[in-house]
Structure formats: structure tokens, C-alpha cells
Amino acid sequence: MKMTMTTATARRRGPASPAEAATLVLALLFLTSSAAAAAAEEYDYYSWQSDNFHNGRFYAKQPQCVDIPGDLRLCHAVGYKRMRLPNLLEHETMPEVRQQAGSWVPLLAKRCHGDTQVFLCSLFAPVCLDRPIYPCRSLCEAVRDGCAPVMETYGFPWPDMLQCDKFPVDNDLCIPMQSSSAGHATQAPASKVCPPCDNELKAETILEHYCASDFALKMKIKEVQRDRGDRKLVAAQKKKKVLKMGSLRKKDLKKLVLHLKNGADCPCAQLDSLAGSFLIMGRRVEQQLLLMAIHKWEKRSKELRYAIKHIKSQQCPTYHTVFQ
């Protein structure tokens, strides 16, 4: 699948003057420590290009510094409070940033790399400085290598807009890896649990996965089978409650089989017992129905009841424009 949005480029605007270089080096120092990062908001410069033409695209508005809003969950706690708009992915308005950035929030919870938020926010909500600073290629590669396998579990490829060869090499002025010590990366511990099973029974988590999924069901599971490197969940023939039909067809419901991609050997506590009903969310990828998330249907759970009550009124990001 290919991205539908215009991709960002990492072209630089020519060599910096000594004064510019000193300013940008100082900015990078701010970005590499949490205490100093907060000071980056003081760089409230508006001295980007004098016209509205950047990287081959014409902008209706001049770049500006804006507060990172509290509902921009991907980047609200990134370590600085002001961002430039348009951002480095060519989103020109805050509603567009919110819509696109929201698609990436669930990835943070998977802890696939310690610098996932730093990398994504350097593009979605770049710190407000006098010129754009892109992530280093090595930062992109480290996050990609840690997170692409998790994304593939859900049928999402690493998107074209984040291809690492678009970003500057490390000897250029760019944002380096943050979670490193003595030159060696120290990633946040990655869970060994199958990603679709590694979810708390929290309303917020359920609603996020509901948005990212094509379909959602309450159903019983008849059996679980191994299928090469995958695990197959075969639904019981008993009546299923459809919460979101999406890409499902009526014939799918008659003989429903979901694939837990690359999940033959990873733990999934929800499948230790097949008794009772399950909340199943998934998406169609080519000819397979992939499992996105699974929860035991616990009737007494206030979190589950709240999620089900609000599930149809949930305002979802446009995942299809981000990952296609």
C-alpha cells in the first residue's frame, strides 16, 4: 500500500551562516535534554523564508509558532510547548495535524522503541525554531527497525512518508537519537506479548483500536489453530454481535477466521481460556482478516461498558489516509 498524502522531504535550504549554525547547534542541545527542551519554546522566531514557497509547495499561510494543544495526544508531553505550523509533513492546519497524528498514538503504547515519540513529533509537531530541523537518518532507522515489525502485525507497512533515506545523515544538523548511552541504543523494553493481545482493558485503549480497525464484534471462539507462523482464531457458529461491520461481508460472518499475524509462539493471555465471549477488532488485508485487538468481554468492567456506550460516537482519525 502507498501513502496518499504528499510526502515530506529532508532537503536543506543551503549552507548555514556561522551565526545560524551556532543557533541551530544550540537548539539541538536543547532537544537532547528534557530540562533544556522546555526552554526551546523561547525560540519564538518567525524568520523562516520570506515567501510562502517551501520544498516545492506553496503555502497559503506563513510559518508560525503555535502552542501544542492538549488534545494533540501524540506530542503534548514531548518536552517542549511550542511547534511550527505548517509542520514538516506539510500539514497546514491544526485540525489536519490532530487528525493525522492521532493515527500514531496506539504505536506509542507498544513501546517498540524508546525514541518513537521523539521521532514522530519532530515531524508532526517540530519545535519552534528559526528554521526546520529534521530527524537524523539513524534516528529514523532505529525507530523503523523497532516498530515496523509491530506495524506489520496489524497489516500496516512502514509508510512512504517516513522512508529514512529522506532524512539527513548524522553528520548534518539534525535531531539525533535520545535513548542512547555511550553511543549504544538503550530501547525501552519491548513487550514479548503478541501486539494485539498486549492491551489493557481501558476505555481509551478500546476506542483507539476501534478506530484503527475495519470491524468490531462480540463473539465466542471455537478453537485456536497454528498456521505456519500465524495463529488462527476460528469463531464459534453462535450468533455474533456486530459493533462495526466495515469491510466484513455476510459470508465472512458465517465462517469467520481471524489471523494473529506472526503470533504462533508469542504469549496471548486472553486465549489461555476460550470460555465466555470476546471483543474482537480487526481489519481486512488482502484475503485475510487480521486481528487488531482482543479483550475478554467482562460484563462487570466499567471501562468496557463505557467504551461500548461511546463507541459509535467516537471521532476517529483517518487511518486510511495515513497508511494506504
Results as ranks from 00 to 15, higher is better:
L289W: 02
L274A: 06
S273R: 14
I280T: 04
D272Q: 14
A264I: 11
G282I: 01
G282D: 05
A264T: 09
G276Y: 08
N262V: 04
K261G: 01
C266F: 06
H259G: 05
L291K: 01
M292H: 14
A269S: 14
Q270I: 01
S273E: 14
M281P: 01
I280Q: 00
G282M: 03
Q288K: 13
E286K: 14
G282P: 04
C266G: 05
C266M: 12
L291A: 07
L291V: 04
A275T: 13
C266D: 14
L271D: 10
G276R: 09
L290Y: 14
S273I: 04
G282Y: 00
P267C: 08
G282T: 04
L289I: 10
L260R: 02
A269E: 14
I280R: 00
C266R: 12
G263Y: 00
C268V: 08
A269Q: 15
L289P: 03
L291P: 02
L260V: 15
D272E: 15
I280S: 01
I294D: 00
M281H: 01
S273H: 13
H259M: 12
V285D: 07
E286M: 12
Q288C: 04
I294K: 00
S273N: 14
G276I: 11
H259D: 13
N262W: 06
Q270C: 04
A293G: 06
Q270E: 15
A275D: 15
Q287K: 15
G276H: 10
C268L: 07
V285S: 08
M292L: 09
R284V: 13
M292A: 12
K261D: 08
Q288I: 02
D265W: 11
P267F: 03
L271F: 10
D265G: 08
L274V: 04
K261M: 07
A269P: 07
G276V: 09
I294Q: 01
G263S: 09
G263M: 02
M292G: 05
A293L: 03
I280A: 02
H259C: 11
C268R: 02
C268H: 07
I294R: 01
S273P: 07
C266S: 15
Q288L: 12
S277P: 05
P267D: 08
S277A: 14
D272S: 14
A269W: 05
H259V: 15
A264Y: 10
A264M: 13
I294S: 01
L279A: 06
I280N: 00
S277Y: 13
S273G: 09
R283P: 05
L290P: 01
V285T: 12
E286T: 12
G276W: 08
